[in-house]
Simulated scan of single mutants.
Amino acid sequence: MRTIAEINDKISRQLAVVWTTEELKARVAEVGVTQAAKEVDVITTGTFEPMESSGAIINLGHTDPPMKIRRCWLDGVPAYAGFGAVDLYLGATGMVEYASTGEAPDGEESRERGGGHIIEDLIAGKPVQLRAIGQVTDCYPRASFETTITRDTINQFYLFNPRNIYQNFIVGVNGGDRPLFTYLGPLQPRLANAVYSNAGAISPLLNDPDLQLIGIGTRIFLGGGIGYVSWEGTQHFPLQKRLPNRTPIGPAATLALMGDAKQMNPRWVRGCYFKNYGPSVMLGVGVPLPVLHEQVVASCAVQDKDIVAPVVDFSIPRRVRPTFGLVSYAQLKTGRISIEGKPVRVAPLASVFLSRQVALELKQWIEAGEFTLTEPVAQIPMDRSFLPQDRWGSQISLE
Score class of each variant (00 low, 15 high):
Ile7His: 06
Lys10Met: 08
Gln14Gly: 11
Val17Trp: 00
Val17Met: 12
Trp19Ser: 04
Arg27Pro: 00
Val33Ile: 15
Val40Asn: 04
Val40Tyr: 11
Ile43Met: 07
Ile43Cys: 04
Thr44Ser: 12
Gly46Ile: 04
Thr47Ser: 15
Phe48Ile: 06
Glu52Ile: 10
Glu52Val: 11
Ile57Asn: 08
His62Ala: 08
Pro65Thr: 11
Cys72Met: 12
Val77Gly: 03
Gly82Asp: 14
Gly84Leu: 12
Gly84Phe: 12
Tyr89Lys: 04
Thr93Gly: 04
Met95Cys: 08
Val96Ala: 09
Val96Leu: 05
Glu97Pro: 06
Ala99Thr: 14
Ala99Ser: 12
Glu103Gly: 02
Ser110Asp: 15
Arg111Thr: 13
Arg113Gln: 06
Arg113Ser: 06
Gly116His: 06
Ile118Phe: 01
Glu120Lys: 04
Leu122Met: 15
Val128Phe: 01
Gln129Pro: 00
Gly134His: 12
Val136Tyr: 07
Arg142Asp: 01
Arg142Ser: 08
Ala143Tyr: 07
Thr148Asp: 05
Ile149Trp: 03
Arg151Met: 06
Thr153Tyr: 01
Phe157Asn: 05
Pro162Asn: 09
Asn164Trp: 00
Val171Ser: 05
Val171Asn: 05
Asn174Glu: 00
Arg178Asn: 03
Arg178Leu: 02
Pro179Asp: 00
Tyr183Lys: 01
Pro186Trp: 00
Val195Phe: 02
Ile216Asn: 13
Gly217Ile: 01
Thr218Ile: 05
Leu222Pro: 01
Gly227Ile: 07
Gly227His: 10
Gly233Thr: 06
Gln235Thr: 13
Pro238Ala: 15
Ile249Asp: 02
Gly250Tyr: 09
Thr254Ala: 09
Leu255Met: 12
Leu255Pro: 15
Ala256Tyr: 05
Gly259Cys: 10
Ala261Thr: 13
Gln263Asn: 08
Asn265Met: 04
Trp268Ser: 05
Tyr273Thr: 02
Asn276Thr: 00
Met282Trp: 09
Val285Phe: 03
Val287Asp: 09
Pro288Arg: 15
Pro290Cys: 15
His293Glu: 15
Val297Phe: 09
Val302Gly: 04
Gln303Asn: 06
Asp306Thr: 07
Asp306Val: 02
Ala309Ile: 05
Ala309Arg: 03
Val311Glu: 02
Val312Ser: 01
Phe314Tyr: 14
Phe314Leu: 10
Ser315Phe: 00
Ile316Cys: 05
Pro317Cys: 00
Arg319Cys: 00
Pro322Thr: 12
Val327Cys: 07
Ser328Asn: 05
Lys333Ala: 01
Thr334Phe: 02
Ile339Tyr: 11
Ile339Val: 15
Arg345Gln: 10
Pro348Trp: 03
Phe353Asp: 14
Leu354Asp: 11
Arg356Gln: 14
Glu361Gln: 10
Glu361Ile: 13
Leu362Trp: 03
Gln364Met: 11
Thr374Tyr: 10
Pro376Arg: 04
Val377Glu: 13
Ala378Gly: 11
Met382Cys: 04
Phe386Ala: 14
Leu387Phe: 03
Trp392Tyr: 09
Leu398Ile: 13
Glu399Arg: 13
